[in-house]
Design a protein around this nucleic acid. Structure first.
Lengths: 131, 131, 131, 131
DNA sequence: GTGGTCTAGACCACC
DNA sequence: GTGGTCTAGACCACG
């Protein structure tokens, strides 16, 4: 299976972090389903053009979060994510990002009305791309 | 003058970055006005309980952005921020944060409606605290 | 004959190790008696839903310990376990596990009294289930 | 500060795991107190005669468990461990080890009385060493 | 000085 | 073939 992950070479965000957050999103959103066997660390490292250590770290971190399950000699699998946990996870992640944005707006004394206008603009633009 | 900056010791965010973003917001929003003489590096470091190196870096970075002006032997002053620049700056910073939140929502396949509900909740809560 | 072995897919413990320790306990405790013909490697692998390589390793390891005997073209049999050997084996295995637990308790500065209370609780609970 | 950790070169237990469990025990038991600055990864690696990567991993794992807090450029500190959490943690770790021992005893059909005798022997012996 | 990331490569255990 | 551990060493970011 081909995992759709995009790496931004120029970003300041660490490689392993880019991969983790994208893979996490794929699992949480249900694009990659429970029980799926992920590529081996060596194969994935080849796909992503990075070192096996980096992929290893990604798998290990997500295993720590309970999203992956690995068995030596066999491979790395996607764990079961309960619907409740899935919804909570999604809600939580998005909430944190929104809170950060609103906090920033308040810290520069941006009014609620200005913020609402900006928000509407962005949502319309981003969700339009998708359709 | 006492600069109201809060440092979060436990955050993974680097010290200098926490200070910079808060000081920047204070200047952009007009809480600290043009021409204000900021504390000396040593004094500020004492206030914030951090090293002088960290404060120097903050002053240097913001000077590079044109927000501060340093006069040898005198101190560090807040530069003029044009109303246009101020508005552009505010808008830009908030927009980036909002875009990140919306991108995240889309990456976990959260619908526009779910996102709107969350957004309303957070804005009401955050702006209520302030009043 | 159906060998009662439970595999825990999620455990970090290697497959072959889970099977070995359970099969060993069954033989030592006398649940599987001397001379019993064990399932063929392929049959057992099918029962346990694991690879034949894993079962072969189990049989080889236990043969190395003198618990099993393989006759080409016939199959794998349970060897004789002397009563003395049986008792020594049981005592030794349980002792090691208890020592590990006591060592851990001491390493976190748990008192002898606290440990005794915990021990009593657990023994009562576990042996009650069995009756 | 000198951290008292013993490494067993011959053990099958991974290096990082030996260090982690001992350091964890030192923190949980209160031998190393809140706020303590641990040795730098390079210094500790020298003390333990292992690579910096191994120490790095230990610090990172324990940070993930909430026991350590690290700040780039400053060092790695012991976090606050609430008394409740501490007791729960101790109790939990010891309980798991005891349960494993009792389970093993039951799996080889060892009687409650035999187990009690063994337990008393071991506790007396181990706690005597300590006094 | 500190920790954070990433690399290449070795060797082992497991299936 | 798979993952698991450990190594040496480089370079960057932070204080």
């Amino acid at each position: 299976m081909r995992i759709p992950i995009q790496i931004n070479e120029n970003s300041a965000e660490p490689l392993y972090h880019q991969i983790e957050s994208q893979l996490r999103a794929l699992i949480i959103s249900g694009v990659i389903t429970e029980g799926t066997l992920l590529p081996s660390i060596r194969e994935f490292a080849g796909d992503l053009n990075c070192s096996v250590i980096t992929v290893r770290r990604v798998y290990q971190d997500l295993e720590g979060e309970g999203m992956l399950r690995t068995r030596q000699g066999t491979g790395t699998f996607v764990s079961h994510v309960g619907d409740d946990a899935r919804e909570e996870y999604k809600r939580d992640a998005v909430m944190k990002a929104l809170e950060a944005a609103v906090d920033l707006a308040r810290s520069v004394h941006s009014s609620k009305e200005e913020l609402n206008v900006l928000y509407q603009e962005i949502v319309e633009r981003k969700y339009k791309q998708q359709e």
